[in-house]
């Protein structure tokens, strides 16, 4: 699966993270790591704290305890836009596209942080600003090509069907050339064909660009098929961690999913 980019060292490790909202403990003492070029799934029943975990990783929530070490740098908290600048991109469970903008503009926005030219050049739309715009346009066109969404390039995303919107959102995240890509339920609400497409894109992203992927997903078939390692959360606690086969055999995980008689 990863002939070009073998799984490497630990890229991100979360250590003893605890996060609570008032009396609700969303995450309790969670530790796990993500290695370079791997596909790491985070699973668990509803309300297990999976999305909170992603929000902690990209700085949207600030945990009360614990640290996050990303590419050798340990931090307690950071702002979301700083996380974006260090190479972490994400998609959302409920699509968070810019509805009034076209597909092209949405994906171009993903490259905003890499564009530097000031307002005066922008106003002239000549010379450096134009070159910059065209250079990034070319990169974005490659993504559009990769995700097979050429036909909706100029369509406002508000008018697109759900499956395509999810794809555009993936495109926007990819535009930032992330090293770590966080996907929050990329296949929720899709039919089988759309799911297969999305799986193919995720595997291709991982394989071609070597992007490390952390994903939350409820479809166990998908998770067990495409991920290298799985971490299982339940009620804010970690109950399992390992390869898909190990997790499948883990008694705690089976209990959490199927319920257990007391």
């Amino acid at each position: 699966m990863h002939e070009n980019k073998p799984i490497g060292d630990v890229m991100l490790s979360v250590d003893n993270i605890s996060l609570s909202f008032g009396g609700v403990h969303a995450l309790e003492n969670i530790s796990f790591n993500i290695r370079e070029h791997e596909i790491r799934a985070i699973i668990g029943p509803n309300g297990a704290g999976k999305s909170s975990m992603l929000n902690v990783i990209n700085g949207f929530y600030h945990p009360q305890e614990g640290t996050i070490t990303y590419k050798g740098q340990t931090r307690k908290q950071m702002k979301p836009h700083e996380a974006a600048r260090t190479g972490i991109a994400r998609t959302f469970q409920n699509i968070a596209l810019f509805k009034g903008m076209s597909t092209l503009d949405n994906i171009m926005t993903g490259r905003n942080t890499m564009m530097k030219k000031g307002v005066f050049w922008q106003a002239l739309h000549l010379g450096p600003a134009l070159n910059e715009e065209l250079e990034h346009r070319e990169f974005v066109e490659n993504i559009i090509d990769f995700l097979e969404i050429e036909h909706i390039r100029k369509t406002p995303v508000g008018r697109l069907p759900y499956g395509l919107q999810k794809r555009v959102e993936l495109g926007r995240a990819l535009a930032a050339q992330p090293e770590l890509l966080l996907l929050d339920e990329p296949m929720a609400g899709m039919n089988l064909e759309e799911k297969e497409d999305m799986c193919r894109f995720i595997l291709d992203v991982n394989d071609e660009f070597g992007t490390t992927i952390a994903l939350i997903e409820h479809d166990m078939g998908v998770v067990m098929d495409i991920s290298d390692r799985v971490v299982v959360l339940d009620y804010g606690k970690k109950i399992g961690d390992g390869t898909p086969d190990e997790v499948r055999a883990n008694q705690d995980v089976i209990d959490a999913y199927l319920g257990v008689s007391h």
């Binding site: 979301p80 836009h81 994400r90 596209l97 810019f98 942080t113």
Partner: peptide, 9 residues
């Protein structure tokens, strides 16, 4: 929120 998460201040 999404804008901030993709790096727009």
């Amino acid at each position: 929120i999404a804008a901030e998460l993709i790096g727009i201040r």
